[in-house]
Simulated scan of single mutants.
Amino acid sequence: MSLVTIKKSHVEADLLVLKSKLESEGIKCFMRNEFTTQIMNYLPSFEVELQVSESDLEKVEEILKEMND
């Protein structure tokens, strides 16, 4: 399974609402660099990445569009 990053942020909390919405729609989400940014939050180069399976990408794009409308 290959993962695709759909959103990045320096603050994990910025991604939690979207992660919750996607999981409520049955889409499995993964947080990349989640713990690295907590430990090394003084380095601006580290971002948390919200990732989904490439096979779910089309459904994710539909949900993101609905959320932005």
Rank of each mutant, 00 (worst) to 15 (best):
L50V: 01
V4Q: 01
S45W: 10
M1N: 04
N41M: 12
V17W: 06
S2W: 00
E47A: 03
A13Q: 14
K7F: 00
N33S: 07
L22V: 09
V52R: 03
Q51T: 02
G26I: 15
L64S: 07
E58I: 14
I27R: 08
Q51C: 04
L15P: 05
Q38H: 13
I27M: 10
D69I: 15
G26Y: 13
E54Y: 03
M67Y: 12
F30I: 07
M31T: 01
E49P: 04
E62L: 14
F35P: 03
Y42G: 13
L15F: 03
L15R: 00
L64T: 08
T5V: 10
T5I: 09
S45V: 11
L50F: 03
M31A: 00
V48P: 00
V60A: 04
L57F: 12
Q38F: 02
E49T: 02
L43S: 15
V4G: 00
S53D: 09
V60E: 06
Q38G: 12
E49F: 00
F35R: 12
E58V: 14
K21P: 02
N33F: 03
K65Y: 09
L16H: 09
M1P: 00
E47C: 03
T36E: 11
E47N: 11
V52W: 02
M31F: 07
P44S: 13
Q38W: 02
V52M: 04
P44G: 13
V4Y: 02
T5D: 02
F30G: 01
S9D: 06
V4R: 05
V11G: 05
S45Y: 12
K8L: 06
N41L: 07
S9M: 05
K59S: 15
L57T: 09
M1G: 05
Q38N: 14
M1H: 04
K59E: 15
C29R: 01
V60P: 01
D56W: 01
K8V: 03
L15M: 07
I27E: 09
L16S: 08
V11E: 10
M67H: 11
T36Q: 10
E66Q: 14
N33L: 05
Y42L: 13
D14W: 01
S2D: 08
G26P: 12
E61S: 12
D56L: 07
S55D: 15
I63D: 10
S9T: 06
L18F: 07
T37Q: 10
M1K: 05
I39K: 15
L50C: 05
K8Y: 06
V17S: 08
G26Q: 15
V60I: 11
V52K: 01
K21Y: 09
E58Q: 13
I63G: 08
C29P: 00
P44D: 14
P44K: 11
L50R: 02
